[in-house]
Amino acid sequence: MNTETLLLSIAMAIAAGLVGAFAVMRRMSLAADPLSHVALPGIGIALALHIAPVFGAVAMLVLGALIVWGVEEKSRATTESVIGVVFSAALAIGSIMTTGENLIEALFGGAGTISWPEKVFGLATASAIVAFIVIHRNSLIVMMVSPDVARTAGINVRRLDLLYLEAFALTIALGLRYLGVLLMGALIIIPPTTAKRLAYDLASMLWISVVLSVISTTLGTGIAVRLHREAGPVIVLVATALFLLGLLPRRRWKHE
């Protein structure tokens, strides 16, 4: 693995750690998985058109986030059933459109070389996502406490919600190369879930989440290369091992 690819995967992991921290606090954990599935038909279309798969995935994910945003105003139950139905169907359609080795790579991530447009897109998007979360973290917290309170504070709740969902969707797109459609949701959710257990305030939550996400990605990729395995599953196993380690201490890391 060369330096550029490593840098790109670290940038992706940082974005995943930050976006995931808010997803876990907002109880969106279960949405991560089905939303990532919607990328598959996008990959299929892109392959058919002979363009880089990631751009097909991005288009479908952005659309998927719009759908979630559109139905979110209804009840929570409605949102969950719409996500369940639409995105499972997307996975089925995508599986028919994408075949053979391409399908395996799309589902679990693959090693292939990364083109220049993809590299530029990856770094630019990861930077934009990190900047978005860092700049809007306070508004996101207020919105999480209560959308009603956020409204009285002059926050445009619907717009901020859409921006967050799109950041979430783009984070999935960034990770598809390494983890694939089936496993990217896990990287967004597992490190922040571990962080939630260990953290004692917002700052520590975000830092621990990012550090665990980066360790999972780099260590997982390193081990995968040595074992001649695909990176995605190993990354998720490392993240899971860290989660299990996090279950051990009974006390939070608070200085007292």
């Binding site: 606090m25 917290i141 962080a195 939630k196 700052a203 939550m205 939070r252």
Partner: peptide, 9 residues
């Protein structure tokens, strides 16, 4: 159970 303190809020 989220790790957010009163001061964070």
């Amino acid at each position: 159970d989220i790790p957010i303190t009163g001061v964070d809020f």
